[in-house]
Design a protein around this nucleic acid. Structure first.
Lengths: 248, 248
DNA sequence: CGACACTTTGAAGACGATCAACGCCGGTGG
DNA sequence: CCACCGGCGTTGATCGTCTTCAAAGTGTCG
């Protein structure tokens, strides 16, 4: 049963500082599974059974209001994890969100107990999980703030910039990893608003044609997108973007 | 150095399952400190040194936009913790938020290393911290959703209901633990909007006079506040509120 | 009693949601 | 090969809600 895990998995921050042998032993407990476009990974209300690590593809996390409106809580790409919150919240929890593949995806799956037990037994792993949740939480918090303080166009700009950096895309030009409809939903705005925002951004140094994005004038762009951001002075993502744009 | 800790501390979920002796040994490392109204606990950019457990009082967490607008990220009351996110995010991190006492408060303080080391060494404690962060994260996520899908009045209603349950107030009548100005800011809306929302809520079974709140018609209230909520069917807080209102 | 912080109320404006129509493109079937 | 269709995205017009600016009301504390 020799299995070669994708680089995204081997070097995942979750396994940092554990040593290769320990990491590989842990990874042995995982099953790599393929989901087709539109296939559900789990649904709202399902009992929580597994912890998931996306190796490739796109997974949409969403909930629905009683009147059928769909709100996406997150979109997971390669390297993102699913299910940790629910697993640690309580024993025998149920999923609070639907997870559906938005294209054919490969997901590495572990049992919920695997996550819980390794966190309990291995201190270093517990700290890695805590770091992971803390980072997610920080992003969620800042984004919530953005909804109150920034215009739709500013939010889109900030989101595109972060997306570029966090997934290592080339800031001079890259393709959106999923549809604009999904991005708009992810940002909590209507598709029309999102579309208009993209138009506005042309005046501020982001060019979008079809699914292709390129950053032209980072100075102008930052002075626009970060004007009303509370962490403008200490935003790691923008720091990295500046570096990435200068280097290439 | 015999110290009697408040009940809120002794029975805090963070120490669940540890045994009284272990818990008390851990608590010995803490210092109880008093902060006056308006006194800062830490400021944005400060190095992260401590983990905080609020024993009494009110602590506002907030950030400021470059143009001076203040956005409050959270308001902590007795039983709430501060600093965990920043501590686990990375070694030698800096605070991403200002923390200021909004009234005279008592806060139990531990070193950041105390939290890190106990999480690393004691599996049960690590799981408790993970549960804590997961729950906070879930709330943050749902609230972000609410901002996109619910009206100001609905958000206020939901917030008041949860506040009542989570702090064990009497649903038939209780006093707001902090000012309306702060609540509005906490909810990411303007004071004027908040004030008008309170007026609207009178039509839906919540009466507010000065700082005094009472729930009258829970059925009507829920059909209003939960109409557009994605977790309406499985909302623990509303479940508890129903029980609390029936019992007393 | 007066000063001040906090809150309410009113009127105007900005922004995003909504409804509607159209353009674009890839696929399917005749 | 072309006509039709459906998914996706854009654009336009209108509407409702929240923000903003302004003023007045309420309460507390010296």
């Amino acid at each position: 049963m020799e299995q070669v895990w994708p680089a995204k998995v081997q070097s995942h921050p979750l396994f940092k500082g554990l040593g290769d042998a320990h990491r590989d032993a842990m990874l042995k407990a995982g099953h790599l599974r393929r989901y087709e476009d539109g296939q559900s990974v789990f649904m709202y209300g399902d009992p929580v059974r597994s912890f998931y690590l996306v190796c490739e593809g796109v997974v949409q996390l969403f909930r629905e209001t009683p009147d059928g409106h769909e709100l996406t809580a997150a979109v997971c790409l390669a390297g993102d994890t699913l299910g940790a919150h629910e697993i640690f919240m309580e024993k025998n929890a149920h999923h609070m969100v639907n997870a559906v593949a938005a294209r054919a995806s490969h997901i590495l799956e572990f049992s919920a107990d695997w996550l819980r037990e390794n966190a309990r037994k291995t201190g270093a792993f517990a700290l890695n999980v805590l770091a992971l949740l803390s980072k997610e939480s920080r992003v969620a918090c800042v984004e919530a703030e953005h909804k109150s303080s920034m215009s739709a166009a500013q939010q889109v700009a900030c989101f595109l910039e972060r997306m570029c950096v966090l997934h290592g895309y080339d800031p001079h030009g890259f393709s959106l990893p999923y549809s604009k409809t999904l991005m708009a939903s992810r940002l909590g705005m209507e598709l029309e608003t999102f579309s208009r925002a993209l138009g506005t951004l042309r005046d501020y140094g982001i060019f979008i044609q079809g699914g292709h994005v390129s950053f032209r004038d980072l100075a102008k762009l930052e002075s626009f997108s970060c004007a009303d951001c509370t962490i403008a002075g200490s935003c790691q993502e923008h720091e990295q973007l500046r570096v990435a744009l200068a280097q290439e």
